[in-house]
Design a protein around this nucleic acid. Structure first.
Length: 486
DNA sequence: TTTTGAGTTGTTCGA
DNA sequence: GTCGAACAACTCAAA
């Protein structure tokens, strides 16, 4: 025990929450509670500090409900969440002074701007101040994972091979309760932050699809392990059957811990013979992909704006607002693409298989800069993640470090036939095509006039004609890629 | 230092 | 319908 805590054992600890809005397996919160000292949980909505990326619309909706749920959880444990809006440094220094705190605990984050902000605050508090950082939101710290030459991994497979044998630590249970300070600091009213859309309120579809908050996240994990883990290896690729874990937004906001997910899945797998090795391995690999992306974010300069492969700085992107808009609205004329984009718009989420298809369509068929797609996803996804979103876009575009761009121009019709063979997914999100027979639904422009008439479709009126011809677009994309190769 | 093997998720063509 | 090879060629990571 150091001198300051010996003299003032009742001094409060401020726990600064960020994307870790949970009680379960929250190391910073648990460590603070364990001291027996008063705990002041704090969330700062910082929209002004350098390099901090503004939240998208869907993000804001989720954050509102997530904060609400987290505040409820804290109240049940006898604590209270303090909300502040403003530059993190100013708000934190003020709160620390107001409550007489002598310690600041938080869980690490990995974006360069966030890390810089954390360092600046620690520096402002001075050497003597007790600042503690914890590992909470990824399974392996960037410093722990190095190639044999001391660099960081740019290819996933060796990264996975290195880590697959390492068992992540056990999750930490939620604190039983918290000591209270004499006075909690003054908190903003969440409603005053106006994070929920009002004019118009577009959140209905998202609210139907999702339940933010820790409790819902843990329930979803159990349901997934019960119902879908066993078939995960193959079934996750089918967009119409909802067989993915659905945990991505909960992970994005830290409502659930990857350690909890890893161990719960592992426990199910070791108890149930019906869960094949392939299933649990594939699921764990997806979790480790989050780490890989977080490490890319940690080591890179700005993942969302900078090509990992510098050669792509010279890529001849097309600038077409009209095409970008058609893609965003789900009016490309390619049913699987439009279904995906409309699922995103309506529910704040898109199945991963379809993310690849729409991503390939934007960057290859339309030759539009991946950053435009990344920004749209950032604004509309509830799970839009600072690491995974740009990393996935760079992979699709071919600017990712390990991509083999010349091989990967997705054929939207082939993909549709393969992964949505009976058109269930398309019919759900593109209802104007619902009456087309299975065979015609993937490429309505190839259908006979009679088939279209029977289904009540007038191409160019009730549903768009394709905005590009895929075959020609593919040739164009390959030519463009040819320009930036060595 | 040099060499070797491999790279999340694909497509097309021809047998 | 199914299968394997070719696509075109670079970078990474480990030996």
């Amino acid at each position: 025990m150091n001198d300051s805590t010996a003299k003032t054992p009742r001094d409060p600890i401020v726990v600064w929450l960020r994307d870790d809005l949970r009680l379960d397996d929250n190391p910073a919160l648990a460590a603070a509670a364990d001291t027996g000292r008063p705990v002041v949980p704090l969330y700062v909505l910082d929209e002004t500090s350098d390099g901090i990326r503004a939240l998208g619309g869907a993000h804001q909706w989720w954050l509102h409900h997530s904060l609400d749920a987290f505040a409820c959880g804290l109240r049940r444990k006898g604590s209270r969440l303090t909300l502040r809006r403003g530059a993190a440094k100013r708000e934190i220094l003020e709160i620390i002074a107001a409550v007489g705190a002598t310690a600041l605990y938080f869980n690490r984050r990995y974006d360069p701007a966030g890390r810089a902000a954390d360092d600046m605050i620690a520096e402002a508090l001075g050497e003597a101040f007790d600042v503690r950082r914890f590992t909470a939101n990824i399974l392996h710290e960037p410093e722990q994972v190095q190639t044999t030459t001391g660099g960081y991994y740019k290819v996933y497979t060796p990264f996975w091979k290195k880590l697959s044998a390492t068992e992540p630590r056990d999750p930490i249970d939620a604190p039983a309760g918290f000591e209270q300070p004499d006075d909690f600091p003054k908190s903003d009213d969440l409603a005053d932050w106006a994070l929920l859309p009002t004019k118009p309120d577009w959140s209905g579809g998202i609210a139907n699809a999702w339940a933010p908050g820790e409790r819902a996240a843990l329930e979803r994990l159990e349901t997934f392990c019960d119902d879908d883990l066993a078939g995960y290896d193959s079934a996750r690729d089918n967009p119409s059957a909802d067989r993915t874990s659905g945990l991505s937004p909960h992970l994005r906001w830290g409502e659930i811990s990857p350690y909890r997910i890893w161990h719960t899945a592992q426990t199910y797998a070791s108890r149930r013979k019906s869960i094949p090795d392939d299933a649990i391995r594939t699921f764990k690999k997806e979790l480790v992909w989050r780490d890989f992306n977080a490490h890319l974010l940690h080591h890179g300069e700005n993942l969302a704006t900078t090509n990992i492969n510098k050669r792509f700085d010279a890529f001849p992107w097309r600038h077409s607002q009209a095409d970008l808009r058609a893609w965003q609205r789900g009016l490309s004329g390619y049913p699987i693409v439009d279904a995906g984009m409309r699922q995103l718009w309506q529910t704040g989420w898109m199945h991963n298989r379809v993310r690849m298809i729409v991503g390939s369509f934007l960057t290859k068929d339309l030759l539009i800069d991946w950053r435009d797609g990344e920004r749209w996803f950032w604004d509309t996804l509830v799970d839009g993640d600072a690491a995974s979103n740009p990393a996935q876009w760079q992979w699709v575009a071919g600017s990712g470090a390990d991509a083999q761009p010349f091989f990967r121009v997705f054929n939207p019709v082939t993909q549709s036939e393969k992964f949505d063979p009976d058109g269930t997914y398309i019919r759900r999100f593109v209802p104007e095509l619902a009456k087309l027979p299975d065979k015609a639904i993937h490429a309505p422009w190839s259908a006979t006039a009679e088939t279209l008439a029977k289904a009540g479709i007038k191409l160019g009126e009730t549903y768009p004609k394709p905005i590009v011809d895929h075959k020609a677009a593919r040739e164009r994309a390959l030519a463009a890629y040819g320009e930036v190769k060595g």
